[in-house]
Design a protein around this nucleic acid. Structure first.
Lengths: 327, 327
DNA sequence: CTGAAAGCGCTTACAG
DNA sequence: CTGAAAGCGCTTACAG
């Protein structure tokens, strides 16, 4: 910019004005500056500009794993809102590791992102307190955080309850629940919804029917096997997230399958035989709302932190409507 | 930082040294600075630091649509390499719109990202020339760009050729090809592979068998209908990307289906009836190689721009092994 | 071991 | 309409 000013024989401020399209520059002056800009191949350094301005026109989205379809759908929704606000988007994956979540979040804050959307991996977000206090808005997404800040969540309990009730309505009394690690908020909430539906129907829950743990194939396969064989086998299964459902589908016998309802929709769910009944989340709505909230905070919204919930949708397709003893 | 220096009664440089863990500070001095840092809640502003340093420790990945499973897999792979290099990652989606690609790419460059990985939406990348010349490495991913720069691609023609040859090997002579817009490089390459396989087998290609266009459901449905009905119906179909395959699966009759091979793997492909035979790309390898290449350039690698190709993998699962007239 | 000066590339306030 | 000065928050190069 200094070079451009020198080449055009004008002051720095005039170049700045031309670059920013500000008014109050004579056409001839502007033309001279423009010529110098092109001759030198000048391109404004936005990082420098933003340093002076105080904001960075960027927000960060901290996900569990961007390659997961749920995460990537969130990401696109956030990106769209950010773009409309003229903000660029940093993304990062914690891989469900609390130390990585913290490391990435603080790295984003050190860059002075204007705001931060976090899908929590850990349970202690005290490290974000100084950032929040110094004015960086934080919105938790998909799971609540441990500090006072907005949170945008699915109605996990309600969805699981509806899915379980759906199985009950189709005659099932012995229903298995295979979920994620109970330390994960969404997993705990979905288990709660399952229990609520059973309780409201007056059905006893055998604790052996509830199997929570990591979502790797082997563990889910073992759970499926344990729950669906033997004299005490369940007649229906509620699989509490997309990875569990996927793994279960791979390990369920082709014939004599229990009824199945999964939490989270899958891309080819409707083409399976039978088609898969799911409780679908709306990741686009979740991401958009979280981003909207973040920018509202940035715009000065000062109401107390809120927990916003997005409803889920039960989509009956076949696998959840088979009566017990048939399947 | 100035405040910290004042509070600790030391020079600015001493604070800088403590913050950066540089040696050459007496323990008592360091303790005093540390105390001031904590009292004031000081956190270093990396953006300012990086302005002085000349780099930004960030790279950008410009995708077609981050919510697409192929894109999000690329993204995770790139992120992993970037993280290992201590770089944060900007992501953005062009939505297949050239003007948006340009807008985003230039915005990233204006932030002075250290490097840029682009999945091209447009065909003219002349606008990136000044950036490349001024030292910002650019790597094209999935599709080549119009300027001299590294490109990391799948073996699209080879994969489509293998998939088509597979159908031929199973007795098909009338094979339909449903693809993306022919202006998209990958689509054109896959069509070329199809033609090559047919030619090598000495099979004539009726131009009516080749249907290229946008990948929306309606258009693909029409193509499927046109190709698979009437006296001239094909006995097999090659669907040239994940969206086309998905749409075709939804519109193919449940019975009397033509044999089917799809380009790109799908998450539940193995659980369909019949299971879906695909030519799988390796998005993780693609993303990792592109990122690797970018950082090699950043590290000074000065060889001429190269086109790097990742092989595809034919995965026979059932839908591509049915002979003609059975289906 | 420690710090005052200059500068990264821009903008904000302020004179002319 | 135009520009010189000061400053955003840090680091680099250099004295002490």
């Amino acid at each position: 910019m200094k070079d451009v000013a020198a080449a055009a024989g004008v002051g720095l401020k005039t170049v700045s004005r031309v670059v920013n399209g500000e008014s109050g520059v004579t056409p001839e002056m502007a033309a001279r500056v423009q010529a110098a800009i092109e001759a030198l191949g000048f391109r404004r350094n936005d990082s420098a500009r933003l340093l002076r301005t105080g904001r960075t026109a960027s927000v960060a989205l901290l996900l569990e794993d961007i390659s997961d379809p749920f995460s990537s759908a969130l990401s696109r929704a956030v990106e769209q809102v950010a773009a409309a606000e003229g903000c660029l988007l940093f993304t990062g994956s914690s891989g469900e590791q609390p130390h990585r979540e913290k490391e990435l979040a603080l790295a984003f804050c050190a860059r002075r992102v204007d705001g931060l959307i976090v899908v929590p991996a850990g349970h202690d977000h005290g490290y974000l307190l100084p950032e929040v206090e110094s004015g960086t808005p934080v919105v938790f997404l998909d799971r609540p955080g441990s500090i006072a800040a907005d949170a945008v969540l699915s109605d996990n309990a309600g969805g699981a309850k509806a899915g379980t009730a759906h199985l009950i309505a189709h005659g099932h009394r012995r229903i298995g629940f295979i979920g994620d690690l109970p330390t994960i908020h969404t997993a705990a909430e979905r288990a709660r919804g399952y229990r609520e539906a059973m309780a409201e129907a007056g059905l006893p829950v055998d604790e052996k029917w509830i199997d929570c743990g990591p979502t790797d194939r082997a563990r889910v396969a073992a759970a499926v096997h344990r729950l669906t064989t033997g004299p005490d086998a369940v007649t229906a299964l509620f699989t509490a997230n997309n990875r569990v459902t996927l793994a279960a589908l791979h390990h369920l016998p082709a014939t004599a399958r229990p009824a199945l309802v999964g939490f989270d929709d899958l891309e080819l769910a409707d083409l399976l035989t039978p088609a898969l009944t799911v409780v679908a989340q709306d990741p686009v709505a979740l991401g958009a709302l979280a981003a909207r909230r973040l920018f509202d905070r940035l715009a000065g919204e000062a109401s107390p932190p809120a927990r916003l919930e997005i409803p889920t949708l039960l989509i009956p397709r076949g696998s959840g409507e088979t009566p017990p003893g048939e399947g």
